[in-house]
Write a protein that binds this DNA or RNA. Sequence first.
DNA 1: ATACAAATTTAACCATGGTTAAAATAAAAA
DNA 2: TTTTTATTTTAACCATGGTTAAATTTGTAT
Lengths: 219, 219
Amino acid sequence: MLTISKENYLKAIYKHREGENLPVPASYIADELQVSNAAISKMAKTLSNKGLLEYQKHKGVRLTDEGEKFALKVIRRHRLWELFLINVLGLTWAEVHDEAEKLEHSTSEFLINKMDKFLGFPKFDPHGSPIPDRNGKLPELPSVLKMSECEAGKTYRVARVQDGDSQLMKYLTRIGINLNTEITILEKFSFDHSINVEMKGHHYLLSEKVVDRIWVADE
Amino acid sequence: MLTISKENYLKAIYKHREGENLPVPASYIADELQVSNAAISKMAKTLSNKGLLEYQKHKGVRLTDEGEKFALKVIRRHRLWELFLINVLGLTWAEVHDEAEKLEHSTSEFLINKMDKFLGFPKFDPHGSPIPDRNGKLPELPSVLKMSECEAGKTYRVARVQDGDSQLMKYLTRIGINLNTEITILEKFSFDHSINVEMKGHHYLLSEKVVDRIWVADE
DNA sequence: ATACAAATTTAACCATGGTTAAAATAAAAA
DNA sequence: TTTTTATTTTAACCATGGTTAAATTTGTAT
Ligand SMILES: [Mn+2]
Ligand SMILES: [Mn+2]
Ligand SMILES: [Mn+2]
Ligand SMILES: [Mn+2]
């Protein structure tokens, strides 16, 4: 069994690339986990000695197959917990991430499989992120694009949002953005990358920070 | 927030006395937490400096009011999790303790209160142990006696069992002992403290180890 | 009262996962 | 190509929560 710290490192590394296995720079991990760069260098060695990372000095780290397996386990637990807390206990979009961040390290394989079954073997979590199955296999991903790359004039459907920032989640809830919400792009402003949209009869000017954290699909 | 270790220490100390606030010997805690006596001495100082324990060398430790408050919070989380896992996910009597032992340290006040409400503010956990409410108040305890102190010839109802040993829990399940099971004491053997009982038409010889971990009430 | 045994505490040590400050390396600019 | 800046690594240090072995205290028998 890995420690909580090690699980968080592997998850952070996986999240950065999510798909392609490109080297992840130390500073990204440091930022994500809120620790110093020095801590990353040290842990990179440790995890690399355990065979979970490929690590060459000054070249960032990459997950080995073994490392990826562990990362996917943690992500599976995280995402199943988020869905479970919403479906069963009625928590909100904005509330589940922080709870899942802790529960993901205290959940046995046995328990998470029970939860998975209870939920009907879901393929996506409440933020639209894919849930690895018990073998670590991800579902086929729908084709999505970042809202910042949308075409003006077209209408899209929200397919995924970046969770983790509960402020952002509250804001989205507040203005009524949820998974599958239909949004029409009215105008894109290149000087600050904000986007003017129409949604349920209302107009909103969404800042760069927001449109960079929402993925949409053709309706 | 306390660390996982500190939460476990406080819980272990509370569990030893469960009611009267008598000093708890170091060796009991060491045994319960599977650490050395030396670790207990050190932690006793630490927790006493934090105002959670009264500690005088060679005289054991006692929880302060503050310490007891924290212990009860951990116990609340533990017992609510056990009930939740049985009621919602269908885990068994024998399975829940170990899961709860980990989840109890990763559950926010917010989440545990949601669970409490979801379960209908239960007063007892699946093993018959009382659940502290959100203010740390315990329900009134039913009058029970240890099975080892029962009278031959009388019939009792199982009111509480000591969880924590999953082997024991499996054994009890195996022979059909559950909360509220009716048991008639046939004969007590003083030479090894075993007891011969009748239950659902079957006879069983229960060892001292077993009868010492079951509490019953008059039917 | 003395000796012995048991329980407890101290001392010295260790692994883990952090920190800050300095050194080294890589990348970007001049 | 040289200089400057940004990133990463190393070094020295620290807190936490463990360990074992030795010393101390307490309780029990003689
Ligand atoms: Mn999340
Ligand atoms: Mn986490
Ligand atoms: Mn339990
Ligand atoms: Mn525990």
